[in-house]
Design a protein around this nucleic acid. Sequence first.
DNA 1: TGCAATTAGATTGTACACAATTTATTTTGT
DNA 2: ACAAAATAAATTGTGTACAATCTAATTGCA
Lengths: 158, 158
Amino acid sequence: MSNAKDTKTTKKAVNPYDCIKLENQLCFPLYVCSKEIVRRYKPFLDELGITYTQYIAMMALWEYGCMNVRELGDYLYLDSGTLTPVLKTLEGKGLVQRKRCETDERSVLVEATEAGMALREQAVTIPPRMGACISLSAQDIAELARILHKMIGGFPAE
Amino acid sequence: MSNAKDTKTTKKAVNPYDCIKLENQLCFPLYVCSKEIVRRYKPFLDELGITYTQYIAMMALWEYGCMNVRELGDYLYLDSGTLTPVLKTLEGKGLVQRKRCETDERSVLVEATEAGMALREQAVTIPPRMGACISLSAQDIAELARILHKMIGGFPAE
DNA sequence: TGCAATTAGATTGTACACAATTTATTTTGT
DNA sequence: ACAAAATAAATTGTGTACAATCTAATTGCA
């Protein structure tokens, strides 16, 4: 019966490149899942006439009401370089209103318009329909959510 | 002691909009984690002079050698609209070679050049350094990988 | 054989993402 | 009070992503 040392010495030689095999990366399946899910949202979001990025911006505004661009960006993990054109597009569609904050002219306050709020009625039908493309058990989904939130909370500060 | 029916009837009323709260979406933490990890690759990839998309393309070529664009795209979940410019950029950097397949002129074969293969020596230093920004236990990482692969394998065919 | 259907890659157009910079405004420290 | 530092958005430039379309080459099959 082999002891620990034997087990080690008889182990197959480790490929020095194993660590950069695509299949051994954590980032790659994350990247693929994220893209694939966003892509599969498209047919549903087309019904609402918005994109995925516009959708998560609306979700934040539906839930939290008026916010400035920085707060929205902190929440969505998006910077002003991304948000400014997204919010201008949503404004063009009549779904949000943008206005300078009166007490701090640097800030731009963003809020869903009446039409923007009304869009939520259609949006509620999306998550149950999207469920069909997620082939995970309720337990796996909960586990996945737990781990992802842990990862997000654990990124080193910059 | 309340029975099942009581438990149900005394439960707090469910908010009809719960299902479109950002925090209840699975897609959003996936999207955030993916973006955040790719973003944190940047300083390391800058040393190699390539982007994340170029990096995963090189990983595939390092591991599997010569491939046509479709095969590479199948592997990376990217279409020719994304890959063509990425591969032309890598070709411009002298890291890959592109040439029409002789037996099927529709195909373009892609292969890492000598310089492209040499880049792998630098690339092996990235995964261990990236580990510092993933705050998960080995068990959580394994669990996350398992669930993500399950999700990828389970997307409905189109 | 010959032509319709398929396949492969490139192109076009739209929409992010983000780093870096710029402009305007506000806050801080003296 | 006021100049320097900090903050908030917007702008600019580069690089994806992907749907839709286009062109060329190959296959299938009547």
